[in-house]
Write a protein that binds this DNA or RNA. Structure first.
Lengths: 207, 207
DNA sequence: CGGGGGCTTGAGGCCACTCAACGATAGTGG
DNA sequence: CCACTATCGTTGAGTGGCCTCAAGCCCCCG
């Protein structure tokens, strides 16, 4: 499911600095994006500032698809991030003549929906330990290199993804370290070694 | 399991009794359904029985779309419910030759995704009062007739939809009644009058 | 009429939150 | 190169919102 397989669509690149906004909620959706390097967070805000991050997008991921013109999330670069982008219109033009593209849009939307469905279960019914364990397993699957899980996001980002506070996330990670299930690398608290994936999976009660 | 009728025609009807299962999670998806009358709940379970209801389907709603063959939820009739059903295969056959159908599948999937995204914000970040207010507003929009909100589901169903306990839902409703924002009809605690939709909307902090 | 499911309400407990202090690190400007 | 500051993370103490456990009522239904 790569966006660059079609020579008819024009691709360009753009780099966003850490913390900068890529697009805002309710903005018209001009582009569809694919992360080339870096990480993106996608979130909604309540009027008083409470934030729910719905997803992190890592290299290879496509985001910004709306099928209807208006973005439903704000997205920001978690770290310096380079994206490929394509005009939404040119996608629609191709979709009009080619059912294959529409079907791959359907496939991608379905994948997003599956993730959201699983995340609803996590947010509605899991304990803090189960949430953090599920998060580590997800990130391990999606971005581990060389046996080390190098998290690009802060504890606050993790908390807002998991529906917790940053303190609770920190305490859960400390507890997992005390249990010997994970370890930190050097003094960088975002570099994590998963010492016992079996036990970690057992702490999450599903998948 | 009463679903083992074998309709020879691609479009037929079936009635499920209150509480009976329509299909189970991880079952192959044979049919797509549309609610003709009644209400359906769609949920996931954790191994220890914790339940997260992702959606209620009311008359007119289509459910059971998977775009991949395996159901991701269990669905049950909340009350006696009649559904129309169509073989998934016949959909796929038509989708192969007609891009219009694929696009309407994409549209429906996108609607489901939007609902899930909004629900993640509710589950991750809203208070119990905000959740219950949001629930009443949603149900008012989707199934109110004659000024009375006739809820088909139990307090436990509502709780499992909102990520709360049934006691918390009950207390929240009682509190809303004390505030004069809603009232019960007769002695039926599932028939609710929304006396002040403005105040109700204000208690939910979004939409 | 008895049984069971559904709803409400109260009392108490606990898990996650709030508030706070502190250390470590990275970025900035003199 | 060194303060200086801001950001990030951890940890502790105490609180509180929601959960747990329990009792009781009502209604439906067999």
């Amino acid at each position: 499911m790569t966006a660059d397989s079609d020579p008819m669509v024009s691709l360009s690149e753009f780099t966003y600095r850490r913390g900068s906004e890529i697009y805002g909620e309710k903005e018209p959706a001009r582009y569809v994006y694919q992360v080339k390097s870096g990480t993106v967070r996608s979130y909604k805000l309540l009027p008083d500032g409470r934030r729910q991050i719905s997803a992190f997008h890592v290299p290879g991921d496509i985001f910004g698809l709306t099928n209807g013109g208006i973005h439903r999330f704000t997205t920001e670069a978690v770290v310096d991030t380079t994206v490929r982008l394509i005009r939404q219109e040119s996608l629609e033009a191709v979709a009009g003549s080619d059912g294959t593209l529409t079907r791959s849009l359907l496939y991608m939307t379905t994948m997003n929906l599956r993730h959201a469905e699983d995340h609803m279960l996590l947010l509605g019914r899991k304990t803090s330990m189960e949430r953090v364990a599920a998060f580590l397993i997800e990130m391990d699957r999606r971005l581990t290199a060389a046996g080390v899980l190098a998290l690009p996001m802060t504890r606050r980002d993790i908390a807002d993804y998991l529906g917790l506070t940053l303190e609770t996330v920190s305490r859960s990670l400390s507890h997992l370290r005390e249990l010997g299930i994970l370890g930190f690398i050097d003094n960088n608290q975002r570099h994590i070694v998963l010492l016992d994936r079996k036990q970690l999976a057992a702490l999450d009660r599903r998948n």
